[in-house]
């Protein structure tokens, strides 16, 4: 077997598919981020008895586009004492995991870029780069608030990755595969959210923490660290961080949908409806995103040590216990 065949085995026979897919994902990410920003502002506003963006376009739908164009037109400031190369690199690097992760997510039965047999692993392997970008950005800014934010981000992400992976592991054990499509297929009878609710809860909590959303948003806690790791970023670079945050929300929700909520499958009792899988997939994904937004605008923020204690004292033991118990159950069932 020649080396190029190995690569082809990994990436799939159709290279064009990947190229088209990545372009498509880029477009999806942009549109999604614009839509999510608008959605978040609207939902937040209505929770708070306000209207939210309204005057710019019908229902304010153009608001995020206008914001985006404005940010492109802003001056890019690099602070004098910042590390210029890394400062510029960080907002770009934050996008790498976004692009890679979408490669393996099955949007519907047919619409997926590449169904790798190590799909789940790919997503979590590349999610690290996100943290890395945050860290580099926070460090390169040469600002104490940024640095504190970056350190917090790293500690938080490293800690919460453990229960996250443990929660995913029980799904992998159940469906006997690391392949996304197999995992979806294993949920044809019962979604994992019903068969392992605890793992779902752990996954969702840890995923919220991984994406630095409230109440786990301490790396960018406004009232403590001004704007956290992106305090010094302006204009387009800030927009990239912003975009990445919302893209990460999409990824996390999409992965949760795939792993726990039956992916593109219709809900069991609604199977008769002639709705394509893609619609179901996005409906579930956006429902999860809505919950994240809802949570964000409800709760205060945790303190840093409480956050870590919560992870080490509750989440990790719970995840470990869950894994052991489920291993036993699977052994009995099979």
């Amino acid at each position: 077997m020649a080396a190029w065949q190995n690569l082809v085995n990994f990436l799939g026979p159709d290279l064009a598919r990947i190229v088209v897919g990545v372009v498509g994902v880029l477009a999806l990410v942009q549109v999604n981020a614009l839509f999510l920003v608008w959605l978040e502002r609207k939902v937040a506003a209505h929770i708070q008895l306000r209207i939210g963006p309204k005057e710019v376009g019908p229902f304010g739908i153009l608001q995020s586009i206008v914001d985006g164009i404005k940010l492109v037109g802003k001056e890019l400031i690099t602070p004098r004492h910042a590390d210029r190369k890394l400062f510029m690199l960080a907002p770009i690097a934050v996008f790498l995991p976004v692009l890679v992760s979408f490669v393996v997510i099955p949007f519907s039965e047919r619409l997926l870029i590449r169904d790798m047999n190590v799909g789940v692993l790919l997503i979590f392997a590349f999610s690290t780069f996100n943290v890395l970008a945050v860290l580099v950005g926070g460090w390169a800014s040469n600002n104490k608030y940024s640095l504190l934010g970056a350190v917090r981000a790293v500690a938080q992400n490293v800690a919460y990755e453990i229960p996250l992976l443990l929660a995913v592991l029980s799904v992998v054990m159940w469906s006997n595969s690391l392949q996304m499509s197999e995992i979806v297929a294993s949920q044809s009878k019962v979604w994992h959210v019903f068969s392992m609710p605890v793992a779902t809860l752990i996954f969702l909590i840890c995923a919220t923490a991984e994406t630095n959303r409230a109440p786990f948003d301490i790396p960018e806690a406004e009232s403590e660290l001004v704007a956290g790791f992106h305090t010094e970023y302006s204009g387009m670079r800030f927009a990239l961080f912003f975009l990445a945050e919302y893209s990460n929300m999409l990824i996390v929700s999409a992965v949760a949908t795939t792993l726990f909520f039956g992916g593109w499958k219709s809900p069991p009792f609604l199977g008769f409806l002639p709705v394509p899988g893609l619609i179901w997939f996005f409906a579930k994904t956006y429902a999860l995103i809505f919950v994240t937004i809802w949570v964000r605008w409800t709760f205060p923020r945790l303190r840093f040590d409480q956050l870590m204690n919560f992870c080490w004292k509750i989440m990790i033991p719970a995840a470990l216990l869950h894994l052991v118990v489920y291993a036993g159950i699977i052994k009995i069932v099979r």
């Binding site: 937040a44 708070q48 008895l49 306000r50 109440p215 009232s223 409800t298 709760f299 205060p300 923020r301």
Partner: peptide, 10 residues
């Protein structure tokens, strides 16, 4: 200050 924005508006 503790991070909950909504009670502020209520």
């Amino acid at each position: 200050d503790l991070g909950g924005f909504t009670p502020f508006l209520y």
